[in-house]
Simulated assay, not measured.
Amino acid sequence: MLKFLRNERLPLHLMLLPSLAILAVYSYWPMAGIVIAFEKYIPTKGIFGSPWVGWRNFEYLFNLPDTKRVFVNTLLIASMKIIAGLIVPIFVALLLNEVRKTMFKRTFQTLVYLPHFLSWVILGGILIDLLSPSNGLVNQTLGIFGVQPIFFLGDNNWFRFILVSSDVWKEFGFSTIVYLAALTGINPTLYEAASIDGANRIRQMWHVTLPGIMPIAILMVTLSIGNVLNAGFDQIFNLYSPPVYESGDIIDTLVYRLGILQSQYGLATAVGLLKSTVSLIMIACSYFMAYRFANYRIF
């Protein structure tokens, strides 16, 4: 005991206690509420007094007409965001890597990084004003060219595109900085050797730069697989409406409507538990792939 108290690392371990306490209280203790997924939960009776229904909530979930549509929308929107969130930052990082004026490069990095710090409550209001069919700037500009007003946020043909494009606009600055940092790790002699062999800037980019950042790109993709069922509740909640449920309704918005608006707590918990289980499997697979293809380890 005295040896442990005299350990030089003891202060460091003690510093972890507040974090562990917060993790236990806010992350692990609430997991006891998972039992609600197997009950017909009645708030006045509590978890221990509500009647047990077993797998009935899950059976009812899979019989809902909206279940398939919601899961398809979630997978589709999340996959589109992952793909676009990979291509755009790499493209921008490659272009910035060719810029030689440091001031312009740093200014551009700062400008594209700023939206990352804004919440979707603010950005949602901005998008609603910009895309308004009556007085939005986008429709007013299209009207100059004779295009009829488009209800972007109320049209199922446009809604997914708006979700993906606005999410990429908000987040690509952060990912661009990651790839720019990866570019600094490429050995400059590789460019000199390619130049001596007659490679122009395009070929140097294709044969030196892209292979140099490919491990980071693989790592980013594999880690994002774990979030394939997280299509962005805060974004969609601030932008969607009943007319676009067909194309924009996802698992999290379904849970919100079932649990908060309709007070079907057991069913909402069942949906959340199913999503968490699938996400856990996907995260485990993504970390295995990150270790397998990018040599990335957590421990």
Rank of each mutant, 00 (worst) to 15 (best):
residue 261 L to W: 01
residue 235 Q to F: 00
residue 244 V to Q: 13
residue 258 L to E: 00
residue 23 L to W: 02
residue 253 T to A: 12
residue 138 V to R: 01
residue 79 S to V: 07
residue 246 E to L: 15
residue 75 L to V: 15
residue 1 M to I: 11
residue 297 R to W: 03
residue 88 V to A: 11
residue 179 Y to Q: 08
residue 165 S to T: 05
residue 2 L to C: 05
residue 81 K to A: 03
residue 241 S to G: 08
residue 237 F to T: 02
residue 190 L to H: 06
residue 110 T to R: 08
residue 125 G to F: 01
residue 142 L to N: 15
residue 133 P to Q: 11
residue 149 P to W: 12
residue 50 S to Q: 13
residue 194 A to C: 05
residue 135 N to L: 00
residue 97 N to P: 01
residue 27 S to W: 15
residue 2 L to M: 07
residue 97 N to F: 08
residue 229 L to P: 00
residue 15 M to L: 02
residue 266 G to S: 14
residue 98 E to L: 15
residue 14 L to V: 11
residue 146 G to Y: 14
residue 209 T to K: 06
residue 169 W to H: 04
residue 264 Q to L: 03
residue 283 I to W: 13
residue 121 V to I: 03
residue 275 K to R: 06
residue 104 F to D: 14
residue 260 I to A: 01
residue 100 R to F: 11
residue 112 V to S: 06
residue 269 T to I: 03
residue 35 V to T: 05
residue 253 T to H: 06
residue 298 I to L: 04
residue 119 S to P: 13
residue 226 G to H: 00
residue 232 G to C: 00
residue 256 Y to L: 11
residue 96 L to T: 14
residue 26 Y to L: 14
residue 145 F to M: 13
residue 279 S to R: 03
residue 127 L to Q: 05
residue 229 L to T: 00
residue 196 I to R: 04
residue 172 F to C: 05
residue 269 T to Q: 12
residue 91 F to N: 07
residue 39 E to P: 07
residue 272 G to D: 09
residue 12 L to A: 04
residue 28 Y to F: 09
residue 115 P to H: 05
residue 166 S to G: 07
residue 196 I to S: 04
residue 154 G to Q: 08
residue 196 I to G: 02
residue 110 T to I: 12
residue 269 T to W: 15
residue 235 Q to G: 00
residue 162 I to S: 06
residue 178 V to P: 10
residue 108 F to R: 08
residue 112 V to C: 11
residue 80 M to P: 04
residue 157 N to F: 04
residue 69 R to G: 07
residue 197 D to W: 02
residue 60 Y to I: 01
residue 54 G to I: 14
residue 174 F to A: 14
residue 185 G to H: 04
residue 189 T to P: 12
residue 298 I to N: 07
residue 154 G to V: 14
residue 243 P to A: 12
residue 209 T to S: 13
residue 55 W to V: 04
residue 97 N to I: 03
residue 29 W to M: 12
residue 280 L to K: 03
residue 283 I to G: 01
residue 131 L to G: 01
residue 184 T to P: 07
residue 115 P to M: 15
residue 138 V to C: 07
residue 109 Q to R: 13
residue 248 G to F: 00
residue 118 L to K: 05
residue 103 M to A: 12
residue 93 A to G: 02
residue 223 L to H: 03
residue 32 A to D: 08
residue 281 I to E: 02
residue 17 L to V: 12
residue 105 K to N: 12
residue 219 L to M: 14
residue 257 R to A: 01
residue 22 I to N: 12
residue 192 E to R: 05
residue 33 G to S: 08
residue 231 A to R: 00
residue 16 L to P: 09
residue 231 A to E: 00
residue 144 I to Q: 11
residue 124 G to S: 02
residue 40 K to Q: 13
residue 246 E to D: 07
residue 258 L to G: 01
residue 203 R to S: 10
residue 192 E to V: 04
residue 27 S to N: 13
residue 75 L to N: 10
residue 216 I to T: 02
residue 288 F to C: 01
residue 271 V to E: 09
residue 83 I to L: 15
residue 37 A to R: 11
residue 100 R to Q: 09
residue 201 R to V: 06
residue 10 L to Y: 10
residue 283 I to N: 07
residue 209 T to E: 08
residue 299 F to W: 11
residue 57 N to E: 14
residue 17 L to Y: 07
residue 235 Q to A: 01
